[in-house]
Amino acid sequence: MSKNEVFEKQAEIKRWLKKIGLSQSQFAELFYDEHHATSLKEEVDTYKEKFKKHLNRPSTKIELLESYLNFLFTTEKFREGGFFKPQSTSDDILNQEIMKLMKKVSKELTEKIS
């Protein structure tokens, strides 16, 4: 994955958090609680800072960002907002330029209706 793809995924997470009304700290706490047996305040606070760095560093693994997005789509706030998990299918029917154009149009439409 390129740094640009990482940046786009980070921006997508930030947009969704804003749309559903969750701060980065609130989301990090939910994510931590879901994935760890204990929730000591110090550990949660440390993870909140780590999460914020994950949303800004170009070296963050795309798989980790995708796991954040997948979890975000399961949160109560997401469901309460009436949102649906975005889905994209990609195959070799369309060439890369058309796929980029379609992605751009889709992004613009999403931003206008949000």
Rank of each mutant, 00 (worst) to 15 (best):
F27C: 05
S67Q: 14
N56T: 14
E42H: 02
L30Q: 13
H54C: 14
L64E: 09
N56F: 09
N56W: 07
T75F: 12
P58W: 08
E49W: 09
F73C: 00
F71V: 04
S59M: 05
D33L: 15
S67T: 12
E43Q: 13
F27T: 02
E42I: 08
F73I: 06
P58I: 09
H36R: 09
P58V: 10
T60S: 03
F71L: 04
D45K: 12
L40G: 01
Y47G: 07
F27Y: 09
F73Q: 00
K77L: 07
K41S: 13
V44F: 04
E76A: 12
L65Y: 09
S67M: 12
E34P: 04
T38E: 06
D45Q: 11
E43R: 03
N70M: 05
Y32C: 03
D33I: 08
L30M: 11
T75I: 09
R57V: 06
T60F: 02
N70Y: 10
T46I: 10
F31N: 11
L40H: 02
R57K: 08
F73H: 00
L72S: 04
Y68L: 03
L30G: 00
E43D: 15
H54M: 09
S39K: 14
L72M: 13
T38D: 11
N56S: 11
E34A: 14
K61G: 07
F71A: 00
S67I: 08
T38C: 01
L64S: 12
K53A: 10
E43A: 08
T46G: 01
F31A: 06
Y47K: 04
S59F: 06
R57M: 10
L65H: 03
L72R: 06
S39W: 09
E76N: 15
K53D: 10
K52N: 11
N70K: 09
F31D: 00
K53E: 10
E66L: 08
Y68F: 15
F71D: 02
T75Q: 12
R57H: 13
L40D: 13
T38Q: 08
Y47P: 03
E66C: 03
A37M: 10
